[in-house]
């Protein structure tokens, strides 16, 4: 396959950045998207040019590191997979592919296609955990959990924190990510006691970091490689509303936005 690539190049976080056009030839349709970029980078190195910085790690769709906005869609045109799981046969021979980094105020570009997703870590640090040791995995029958709750928690826990939801959202909102983290813990007995505190702290952090607001556009759900459902956002809204209306004030020392 021969392809024309328009790729965002940016020397560092402060640089202005621009699109560069590259031509790749003789690409196998069975090649993965990242392998195609590897081939391009090899050729750039051979020409003593700076290779394109892009993030990748496991290359099997579970680490959430790869983050490319391809032809107007995070993780490219396929549903339910990350960039690393996509193959070049998904594209037409001779076509043009536009590759951009995630765009959000809270995800600054570090270099080329590489972004800083520390904001997600900060949201987790604000409350996305259980603050006591709950021990090793208990015996299956030790703490009974209804099957449907366990399934919903497991589905929410599938979130790999890649940030495609933020990238897809027209408002750069992190609601799907935050809601998945809130839901996976709120649905299980170990996470329940701190649920009210958690949802308020995580939402406050999300706002503080400058992510946009949810307008229920649902692009996040359409683009999530792990197919996290927007029902998690509804669950978070419910949890938040209940925490505000029904919970006693317990956030001593921390400032939850009202």
């Amino acid at each position: 396959m021969d392809l024309k690539l328009k790729i965002w190049r940016q020397e560092n976080a402060k640089a202005k950045g621009r699109f560069e056009t590259y031509h790749v030839t003789n690409i196998s349709p069975d090649c993965s998207f990242l392998e195609m970029l590897d081939i391009l980078n090899e050729s750039l190195v051979d020409k003593f040019e700076m290779p394109i910085a892009f993030e990748h790690d496991c290359r099997e769709g579970i680490c959430g590191t790869c983050s490319l906005y391809i032809n107007g869609r995070p993780h490219g045109p396929d549903a339910g997979i990350t960039v690393c799981q996509m193959h070049m046969r998904r594209f037409k021979d001779g076509s043009t592919i536009v590759i951009e980094p995630w765009r959000a105020r809270s995800f600054p570009v570090l270099r080329d296609l590489m972004i800083d997703r520390t904001a997600f870590d900060e949201i987790i640090q604000a409350g996305g955990y259980i603050s006591i040791a709950t021990g090793n995995a208990p015996d299956a029958h030790a703490l009974p959990v209804p099957k449907n709750k366990a399934d919903l928690a497991m589905d929410a826990a599938a979130c790999i924190g890649c940030g495609a939801c933020v990238a897809a959202c027209k408002n750069a909102s992190a609601m799907l990510f935050v809601s998945a983290k809130v839901a996976q813990l709120a649905l299980l007995p170990q996470g329940r006691p701190e649920a009210a505190r958690r949802v308020q702290a995580m939402v406050a952090k999300m706002d503080e970091l400058g992510f946009g607001n949810c307008t229920n556009t649902y692009a996040c759900e359409a683009e999530c490689p792990k197919e996290i459902k927007i029902t998690n956002i509804a669950l978070m809204n419910r949890e938040f509303f209940a925490a505000k209306v029904c919970s006693q004030k317990e956030m001593a020392g921390t400032s939850g936005a009202g």
Partner: peptide, 20 residues
């Protein structure tokens, strides 16, 4: 306004996601 501010740099090619 907050939503506009949340994405200061727009995408070159955007809006291909299936949405409401």
């Amino acid at each position: 306004v907050q939503n506009w501010v949340a994405r200061p740099v727009r995408y070159k090619k955007e809006g291909w996601s299936h949405t409401s």
